[in-house]
Design a protein around this nucleic acid. Structure first.
Length: 904
RNA sequence: GGGCGCAUAGCUCAGUUGGGAGAGCGCCUGCCUUACAAGCAGGAUGUCGGAGGUUCAAGUCCUUCUGCGCCCACCA
């Protein structure tokens, strides 16, 4: 079979559908229990149905897929639960826009009609991102796909609401809420984005009965219409005579008291604050303390209402502000306006300035709920991949306020509260027949729906069947790792924590991995408004999902922000191409392997060569180290180790080392010597065997990162080596175990091969420096300094000859005279002579040696000064001192040789 | 205003308990060596943002300054 020379990404879709057909991603509580497997569960942060895959999703889901595939190979019963959330506001906005094109409004359709349109829209577009995740290679259990408005999840929402209500943890009350005058709904604190805005600080004064005026400042003059007090700091000498007197709000003629409250900072401005309890959160608190009336002067659309006075009624916030400034000026009460940059809250979905408005809304009482969620972190049960994220989490919970959960929307879970004509509230999962307080039978349900995050907060257990006691819930809950981005630590992570603790009695996960943000090439956030977003699907089309996944995870610290640009994909693509070709090479050189398998499997004396042992040892260590890194969620490091190993050790060294053995049979056949042929075949066989085994292992450790190419190559290699046909996929293969790891032990094979690499590198460096082309083969003389080295050079003669570009290698004893026209190289355990006098430029050679000498002297001086340092000798670990001494000896020996060389 | 992060080679970034400064890309030299030119071999490149401190030893710990970035926040 011909294999193309370049990495073939076009098979990804086909491979993926084969996986689905095989059902390899399915999780089963029953099977897991029956087989005594431990569960490993990840809950995918449900993207909302309006979203399409962006780079953040790509990174986030690649991380999850790596962890879940790794755990699956390790033999866990793995569940990666996928799903979507209904995103009440975002979805309504999208659908309303679509309807607006046809000239239809939400109100034209009515609640029922609009909901029908929303479901239709969800039917058509809600699954887009799911298909996009499949292109990325995500190995979710898609048969369990959930949506926050599924029947089961909706039931969980009602159950949770009713229980919290019955325990008095949910209440309805008049509070100032963040009101979006455009969306006409309240929103939670977390949905408010604060932006620095250029504005003015307006200075005015109000007349005070009998004593003139009192000056104050405000950024929002229109709220003056709702003022119900003037406040000064307690014991402020400037104003102590005024406290208790009444000022007058001119436009509405209201008399308001002058009070003292510690909220006022006497140092700021004039030390006087006007108090508008119905339109400012602080003033609301002050109002409570002083029992002030709350005067709401605004309609829900942001215009002034009838209480604001006939002169202003119907004006927008902005117009009312202008008119009030004019009117105050006319009355001589306007002082000045100074430019001011201040933070103004905006709705994160539509960018409209938030208006704090008094509303009857539903709230979740947070103090009692937040405590266990905070304790879980402080006690160490909940771990974040970086401490700083834990701090953010804790800080938020420590300063949490009650959560406004009602939204004046239609798309979502309608609040299960019913009102009778006497104003009583009945909360019930199903429509109640009568009022639970007075028995009245005419009940109307609350018009509002719940905050989307209320349902998302239940996600870890609602998706597993709660409130039913399912075996899934029993087996898979609590989950293991949550992978998400910084932006929703508050929205989602914290809320899942307290809901899980509340309803399951156990936190929903023990590890949180917060991934960094994928920015554009200049480090700016990718955003629609900037138009700098890069579509992962385009990248997948151009490079393949594996390349994208590898680029996103290789080397980096995944908790740090990263910059994305197309050029960064090339190294990843090049690596996959390298792996592809290495496999192609191995497959091409499997001639005779199957016959040999039968011949030699039971044959004695088929020991591995030194280089086989070496690469096996290294591969074994790699497997252990990668597993350790993945366990520790150091994904970037795990990936980096694999990539470096495959490229450097396996491809650049091992494959080159075994080439003479692979080609040896052919050569032996030319001689016709039966014994030689048989020996060559044995050598070839062990090379083929080791190549296949190591490569097979490498595919497995790489599989979680780049699942498609490893599946493809794994099957191709197994086909070539004649592995039984029941091996149909790499996804269900166990994580490789070659033999028990010898942690930290450097094997003899490893030390030996490292020495050979050093020798080869040294020869290559000299050759390059002297500009000897690779095609020019030269005779090399090796003089081993001891018996061990002599054996080593003998054992590795074949590849040593090939890799150093030698025509042949002569082993000589130290007492044999070396031809004078040679260049000598000193390596560990041997002197090497390149008889290439004709090619040597004496001046260049001396320059090289001098440079080498200086370098060695420097190193020795460095170590000497260290060894002469009393502090170091007294306090440094013994092993370190010994290592330094050893290095010094080594350098000194080389220096002696170099000096000798320079003399001669 | 509070909290946090980043600053290391020309560029993008690693550097896990303090112990000889790394990778990829780019650059220079030589190679189409029967897997791969998306490749191979060799090479150059850093007062690890500035200043102090702790230590025998600091990119790594502490203090402070500068320049970016993020999050939180009710100073009228």
């Amino acid at each position: 079979m011909e294999i193309p020379k370049t990495y073939d990404k076009s098979r990804e879709a086909e491979i993926y559908s084969r996986w689905l057909e095989g059902g390899y991603f399915r999780a089963s509580a029953e099977n897991g229990k029956a087989q005594g497997k431990k569960p490993y569960t990840i809950m995918m942060p449900p993207p909302n149905i309006t979203s399409q895959l962006h780079m953040g999703h790509a990174l986030n889901n690649t991380i999850q897929d790596i962890l879940i595939r790794f755990k699956r190979m390790q033999g866990f019963e793995t569940l990666w639960m996928p799903g979507t959330d209904h995103a009440a506001i975002a979805t309504e906005v999208v659908v309303m826009k679509a309807l607006a094109q046809q000239g239809i409004t939400k109100d034209d359709l009515g609640r029922e009609g609009f909901l029908e349109k929303l479901w239709e829209w969800n039917e058509e577009y809600g699954g887009r991102i799911i298909n996009q995740l499949k292109k990325l290679g995500c190995s979710c259990d898609w048969e369990r796909l959930r949506f926050t408005m599924d029947e089961g999840l909706s039931d969980a929402v009602l159950e949770a609401f009713v229980r919290l209500y019955e325990e008095d943890k949910i209440y309805r009350g008049e509070r100032l809420v963040n009101w979006c005058v455009k969306c006409q709904t309240s929103i939670s604190d977390a949905e408010v984005e604060h932006k620095d805005t250029e504005g003015y600080l307006y200075h005015f004064k109000y007349p005070v009965e009998g004593v003139g005026h009192i000056a104050f400042a405000t950024t929002r003059p229109e709220t003056m219409l709702g003022d119900t007090a003037i406040a000064v700091a307690p014991n402020d000498d400037r104003y102590k005579d005024l406290v208790g007197k009444f000022a007058e709000v001119p436009m509405v003629g209201r008399k308001i008291p002058i009070i003292e409250d510690s909220y006022v900072d006497p140092e700021y401005g004039t030390g006087v604050v006007k108090i508008t309890p119905a339109h400012d959160p602080n003033d609301f608190e002050v109002g409570n303390r002083h029992d002030l009336p709350r005067i709401n002067i605004m309609n829900n659309d942001g215009t002034i209402n009838e209480i604001g006075g006939t002169a202003y009624q119907g004006l927008t916030r902005e117009d009312a502000r202008k008119k009030i400034i004019e009117d105050m000026t006319a009355r001589g009460l306007y002082i000045k306006a100074e430019p001011l940059t201040h933070a103004v809250g905006e709705h994160d979905r539509c960018g409209t300035a938030i208006e704090p408005l008094m509303q009857l809304q539903w709230f979740v009482k947070m103090d009692a709920l937040a405590k266990p969620a905070l304790d879980a972190y402080t006690s160490g049960k909940l771990k974040f991949n970086r401490e700083r994220f834990g701090k953010t989490y804790a800080h938020w919970l420590e300063n949490i306020r009650d959560w406004c959960i009602s939204r004046q929307l239609w798309w979502g879970h309608r609040i299960p509260a019913y009102y009778c004509e006497n104003g009583h509230i009945t909360v019930s999962k199903s429509v109640p027949e009568k009022c639970s307080t007075c028995g009245a039978i005419h009940l109307t349900q609350d018009e509002d729906v719940l905050d989307t995050w209320f349902s998302s907060a239940l996600w870890p257990f609602s998706t597993l069947g709660w409130p039913e006691k399912t075996s899934e819930l029993d087996y898979f809950y609590p989950t293991n790792t949550l992978v998400t981005d910084r932006g929703i630590i508050f929205f989602w992570v914290a809320r899942m924590m307290f809901m899980g603790e509340k309803f399951m009695g156990e936190i929903p996960f023990t590890h949180v991995f917060i991934n960094g943000t994928v920015n554009d090439e200049h480090g700016r956030k990718m955003s629609k408004s900037l138009g700098n977003g890069i579509d992962p699907l385009e990248i997948i089309d151009d490079f393949g999902a594996d390349t994208l996944r590898l680029m996103l995870t290789n080397g980096g610290a995944l908790d740090n922000d990263t910059r994305f640009f197309r050029e960064r994909l090339e190294p990843a693509r090049n690596f996959l191409n390298k792996l592809w070709n290495a496999t192609r090479f191995v497959i091409m050189n499997m001639d005779g392997f199957n016959e040999s398998l039968e011949h030699y499997t039971h044959a004695r004396g088929l020991t591995q060569q030194l280089e086989d042992e070496w690469i096996t040892d290294l591969t074994n260590r790699l497997v252990v180290e990668v597993a350790e890194k993945l366990e520790a969620h150091e994904i970037g490091m795990a990936v980096g180790k694999i990539v470096d190993f495959i490229w450097d050790e396996f491809c650049d060294w091992y494959i080159e080392m075994v080439k003479p053995r692979l080609y040896g049979v052919q050569k032996a056949m030319e001689t016709g010597d039966e014994t030689a042929i048989e020996n060559a075949k044995k050598l070839r066989f062990t090379a083929q065997y080791t190549l296949g085994m190591v490569l097979d292992t490498l595919f497995k450790v790489l599989h979680p990162i780049t699942p498609f190419i490893t599946e493809d190559l794994f099957l191709a290699l197994n086909h070539a080596t004649g592995t039984p046909s029941e091996v149909r996929t790499i996804t269900t293969q166990p994580w490789p175990v070659l033999y028990p790891a010898k942690a930290g032990v450097v094997s003899l094979a490893e030390k030996s091969i490292e020495r050979m690499k050093e020798a080869i590198r040294a020869i290559r460096a000299v050759r390059t420096e002297k500009q000897v082309p690779p095609s020019k083969k030269i005779a090399i003389i090796v003089v081993p300094m001891d018996e061990e080295s002599r054996i080593l050079f003998n054992f590795t003669k074949d590849f040593f000859t090939a890799l150093s570009g030698a025509s042949h290698v002569d082993m000589q004893d130290p007492d044999v005279a070396i031809p004078s026209s040679t260049v000598s190289i000193v390596v560990s355990g041997a002197n090497i002579y390149l008889p290439m006098d004709a090619l040597v430029d004496r001046e260049k050679e001396n320059a090289r040696l001098t440079k080498e000498k200086q370098k060695l002297e420097q190193e020795i001086a460095r170590i000497d000064s260290k060894l002469a340092n009393e502090g170091f000798m007294a306090k440094a670990p013994e092993a370190l001192v010994a290592a330094e001494r050893e290095k010094r000896e080594d350098f000194a020996a080389k220096l002696a040789k170099v000096n000798e060389e320079l003399k001669g």
